[in-house]
């Protein structure tokens, strides 16, 4: 079972995630997203080799976000509070049953989104995703390879900031100790950082063209990506799991 998810065609994987997200957007009961969340987490952790620690670490920011959404929807929900549905009062706010349920639903919706996206990110090579978009969705190679070239810049970004920092040090720039000075230096770094990024981009473009790149569709691929029956199987499986959680929720309400 290990590494199974990693070999699914990236476009199909993205499409499956996309379908789930769209369907989730129409659901305001708390049971479906809650069920679905449990299913995804169990499924992903068993079908892809992702450590539990990593998963939890990445989930933390979403928990905060989910809590925020839950809170807002519960307090500012549009169902007016009546004597019937009043749950409890928190200071100046009155919280009623309907709004609270919607809040919980939104919270779990966000957790589902996060779980789906983590499933996608942890198991997909971005370059292969781009190539798959070119090969399966007829994305223009000019654009796709342009993006890949830009993507190459990502790991260099940290070094780039460090280099600018060092240059300012060496050339007698001010020392940055206080928070205020740090903020001021942020401003001083943005423009040089962007400028050097653009310069590198132009060089990369020259390198691409010097290797005969024209952006036309007439090219072969070293990494060919195909859609096999098992990819569709995966797609159907995801939809099936969603329907299962939907029917479970029907039993609850």
């Amino acid at each position: 079972m290990n590494q199974q998810l990693q070999t699914i065609n990236p476009t199909i994987k993205a499409a499956a995630v996309f379908c789930c997200v769209v369907m989730l957007s129409f659901i305001y009961n708390p049971y479906t997203p809650a069920c679905f969340y449990v299913i995804i987490v169990v499924g992903v952790l068993s079908a892809a080799r992702i450590s539990l620690k990593k998963w939890l670490l990445f989930t933390i920011p979403f928990l905060i976000l989910a809590a925020g959404c839950m809170w807002t929807a519960a307090v500012f929900g549009k169902v007016p509070t009546t004597a019937d549905n009043l749950l409890f009062e928190a200071g100046p706010f009155e919280i009623n049953r309907e709004n609270a349920l919607v809040g919980i639903s939104l919270g779990f919706r966000i957790l589902c989104f996060s779980a789906l996206s983590m499933m996608f990110i942890f198991t997909t090579d971005p370059i292969l995703f781009m190539l798959s978009l070119v090969q399966q969705c007829r994305l223009s190679p000019k654009l796709a390879y342009g993006i890949i070239a830009g993507f190459r810049f990502l790991p260099l970004l940290k070094d780039e900031v460090q280099i600018i920092q060092q240059a300012h040090k060496i050339r007698g720039g001010a020392s940055e100790n206080g928070l205020k000075e740090k903020l001021a230096s942020m401003k001083r770094y943005t423009i040089p950082l962007l400028a050097s990024a653009i310069r590198k981009a132009e060089r990369t473009a020259i390198a691409m063209e010097s290797k005969g790149f024209t952006g036309s569709r007439n090219r072969t691929y070293y990494r060919t990506l195909t859609v096999a029956p098992r990819d569709w199987l995966f797609f159907l499986l995801v939809l099936l799991l969603f329907s299962v959680s939907f029917f479970i929720s029907l039993c609850f309400s």
């Binding site: 370059i127 390879y145 890949i148 070239a149 993507f151 190459r152 590198k200 060089r203 990369t204 020259i206 390198a207 691409m208 010097s210 290797k211 005969g212 790149f213 024209t214 007439n218 090219r219 072969t220 691929y221 070293y222 990494r223 060919t224």
Partner: peptide, 29 residues
């Protein structure tokens, strides 16, 4: 082969970089 070694690459790995030129030549896989 350019003067500045950081100036001449557009892919992430050695293998892909070499393949990139060959793909432009439309060479079979």
């Amino acid at each position: 082969v350019f003067q500045d070694p950081d100036q001449q690459f557009c892919m992430l790995t050695v293998e892909d970089e070499i393949a990139f030129g060959l793909e432009n030549l439309q060479m079979p896989k």
